[in-house]
Nucleic acid binder design. Sequence first.
DNA 1: TAGATTGTTAATCGATTAACAATC
DNA 2: TAGATTGTTAATCGATTAACAATC
Lengths: 214, 214
Amino acid sequence: MDLKRKISIAVIRRLPRYYRYLSDLLKLDITRISSKELAARMDITASQIRQDLNCFGGFGQQGYGYNVELLFNEIGKILGVDSGFNTIIIGAGNMGQALANYGNFEKRGFRLVGIFDVNPQIVGKRIKDIQIMHFDSIDEFIKNNRVDIAILTIPYNATPAVAEKMARLGIKGLWNFSPMDLKLPYDVIIENVHLSDSLMVLGYKLNQKYRRQA
Amino acid sequence: MDLKRKISIAVIRRLPRYYRYLSDLLKLDITRISSKELAARMDITASQIRQDLNCFGGFGQQGYGYNVELLFNEIGKILGVDSGFNTIIIGAGNMGQALANYGNFEKRGFRLVGIFDVNPQIVGKRIKDIQIMHFDSIDEFIKNNRVDIAILTIPYNATPAVAEKMARLGIKGLWNFSPMDLKLPYDVIIENVHLSDSLMVLGYKLNQKYRRQA
DNA sequence: TAGATTGTTAATCGATTAACAATC
DNA sequence: TAGATTGTTAATCGATTAACAATC
């Protein structure tokens, strides 16, 4: 994983997709694949695959292609699936619970270590072995436990203040589900999920296709 | 909205973001804004804003800038927030319920008209005035109601078959939450949401910054 | 009017694709 | 070995940024 030059975010965002396709190939007991065939499956060019992978190293072999398991593991390493990130969920509403129950994150290196909410009706309940704690106890919790990432599934208006609090408590990464672009005067890394943006793009495409503008 | 040339998907995907920022400006009672100032707020270039907007028409005025409300409405029209898309949710687990309860979609032109599940424990319950129906009754429902978009919040393995069924029933758009790239031999428009991809990118960035590779 | 800012063309930059020598 | 396919350089394409005349 040399750092000769900065790897573009476009490449990074494709890595999880490669990871998914390689995972599928593994499940199909396919042990080797050429960039050409993988490209066909993924609907991209073989050139792009080879360029992308060579940002991180030469994982293939001339005349042979790529060993699926090896490549899967290498991309996993690049993405840090063996990093064991400790995460907490702030906001145990439907979205928070959905994410808490989603088993895939664990497989990808994200361990859920705490869930917080302000609603006394919810505090104390268990989700996946984890008892929901009151948000008031979060300072204490973070003091006593390593927490890398806070997942924010809280109401829109609460988000900026809670995010700032997380940053001040030393959290390194925020995964934000409120429809806003979080920006903080701390060097915390933020990844925003914009669900309604995605839905609106779908709406746009439908209108384009069916000219159903109201 | 002339169609002189195809508008790139990169531009389209920025539109909801413009829409959000303009909505914020409206709430702040700001009535006009220059591309320069909006650019500063959004952390992009003024050039990009003017280029993007001029794909759809000249909404500004030399020497003045853009009228916030007018621009907001125009982008809304482009995105079809007044199209009144009828949507159904398939899968009333936590994710399905989270989306059902999320008020923002309605504001953006997406009306929820049905929720379906296969779990008899859940069928019959109400979410937001809508009684959860059994998935078996979906053919009937779609026959009797216009449904534009199906939101798929169902288990991974169930997704391809359900998606195909939706396409065969004439649904025009699918919003898929399973971590796979849905592809169907129908001309249905699909928008995939890849939550774990987003989380993995966050993980990558954290590793880059803190060199904490396990 | 003078100043500001757009709409739009031209220049630049970066990302994608093509090509091919290296090599398994 | 011959065939296949990579890694990598070069060419192309598209997207972003800069510049500026038009004009409010």
